[in-house]
Amino acid sequence: MKTRHKRLAIIIAGVAGLTIAGLLVLNAFRNNLVFFYSPTEVLAGKVAVNKTFRIGGMVEKGSVRRSGDGLKVDFVVTDLNKRMPIHYEGVLPDLFREGQGIVAQGRLQADNTFTASEVLAKHDEKYMPPEAAQALKGGAYAAGKEAKKP
């Protein structure tokens, strides 16, 4: 075995070993690397009570209630399995609308509702012109646009 072959073998083995080690470490920290929990996970008791965490899901259609001054918002986040009512006071991102994915940071209350201190909007990986979206969804886009208007 020539030295350069030996060096090549050492490098390949080293990189492979480090990759495996890295993936094992990341796998072990899997739960701590999660940016948000789903309502199902929260209601199953996977999150410690009285701890700030993030909950993510879709804003349920028809669930958004705004107060008179427009800053207090109540809505329901769902993962299409379990629902979680969320109370929030503050400015919402532009993308916040019914049917949109969001991530809210805050605390779980005793009555199994969630008080958020921050609401972030998620958007999906789809990019298309409005006409294409309309054709795809058969007018669901137009309905979403209507709902966005205060």
Partner: peptide
């Protein structure tokens, strides 16, 4: 893909 992230999944390289 591995974790719940705020960043959306890949659009092109999937």
């Amino acid at each position: 893909e591995w974790w719940n992230t705020l960043h959306q999944p890949a659009s092109v390289s999937k």
